[in-house]
């Protein structure tokens, strides 16, 4: 098991290098960082431009440029943003913390309710409850997050205020403007709507995964063997059903981090929530290469990390995998 993890880790590093190189290429071609710099700083001297090129590894030779960028990135010699010459790390760190908070809240809520809904649907396939859950999930996955965000904002903020004089949930940011310090209840109120938007997608997806996975398991012979032992129905379900049903779901969950981050990006933008998504859309819009590259590295690394977690949890849950 330990060696298996080590081997997977050893694989992750070259993958990270290759993928960041591809991202570097794509950004070089797609956003033309030097032109963006000149656009934002039209009066920059030739020396300033050259300095910008050197620090960011924007050599005309892509491979050489990438290696320069890599060296500077690893040694912590990060270039400031092209607009306003801000330090990148503090901005990235804050964005990461905010997104992690929203993402964790939405994932926990989403997976919890999604799994429960899936289990309830699977226990009586074809029953009223199953049809209701299944149809709702279907509607849920058909609604893009920005649509649900707009409709929720309209209902709970704008019209709630019209009808009851005060909006139920705020629609933008983490705190009201000018607020300072930590205030948990306030923060939670600000997070309710964005969390719901992201969680809807997760609930819809996972209830479907869980339902089909549990249905497969419930029809399997070992469930009948378990029942023939005379143990309680609950124990049959939990001890024999759940663990087997969770194997495929856990794998998908860890691989799904990309789509969850995708949902977060959209949601953050609509709720002006200062996380990774807002950070990305802003810096992408401005072609801000020094801000974009570290962001990409974080995303690539987390995708790889969750892949690794998927493999490990799969091996942990399913003894048939461990030998390989």
């Amino acid at each position: 098991m330990f060696r298996y993890i080590l081997r997977r880790l050893a694989w992750a590093i070259p993958t990270l290098l290759i993928v960041t190189f591809l991202v570097y290429l794509a950004l070089r071609i797609g956003t033309d960082p030097v032109a963006s710099y000149k656009r934002v700083n039209p009066r920059a001297t030739r020396a300033k431009v050259q300095q910008y090129i050197d620090v960011n590894g924007l050599d005309p030779n892509f491979v050489k440029g990438y290696l320069t960028w890599l060296r500077n990135f690893v040694t912590g010699d990060w270039a400031p943003s092209i607009k306003g010459r801000r330090e990148v790390w503090p901005a990235l760190k804050d964005a990461m913390a905010n997104t992690l908070r929203l993402g964790t809240a939405a994932t926990v809520v989403g997976i919890f309710f999604g799994l429960i809904a899936g289990v309830f649907a699977a226990l009586r396939p074809g029953g009223k409850r199953d049809v209701f859950i299944n149809t709702s999930a279907f509607v849920g996955i058909s609604i893009p997050p920005f649509i649900s965000a707009i409709l929720l904002q309209l209902l709970f903020a704008v019209y709630w205020q019209r009808w009851f004089g005060e909006s139920l949930f705020p629609t933008s940011g983490v705190y009201p403007p000018g607020h300072s310090g930590f205030d948990l209840p306030l923060m939670i109120r600000y997070m309710v709507l964005p969390t719901i938007v992201v969680a809807i997608q997760i609930i819809a997806t996972y209830s479907r995964y869980m339902r089909s996975s549990l249905l497969d398991v419930l029809n399997s012979d070992y469930m009948r063997t378990a029942r023939s032992k005379g143990i309680s129905e609950r124990r049959v379900l939990v001890k024999h059903g759940m663990r087997n049903a969770l194997i495929p779901v856990v794998t998908i969950a860890a691989l799904d981090v990309g789509s969850i981050v995708g949902g977060l990006i959209i949601t953050e933008n609509i709720f002006s929530y200062p996380g990774m998504g807002l950070y990305f859309l802003k810096s992408f819009g401005e072609g801000d290469f020094p801000l974009l590259m570290p962001w990409m590295v974080v995303i690539v690394a987390s995708v790889l990390l969750f892949n690794l977690i998927a493999d490990i949890s799969y091996a942990w849950l399913d003894p048939r995998i461990r030998l390989e």
Partner: peptide
Amino acid sequence: DLFLAFPFLVTLLVVRNVLGAV
């Protein structure tokens, strides 16, 4: 695998820009 593991919108925007720049 790689493309599908990435956040959809990010890939889409980057590919869009690359496609437009060729």
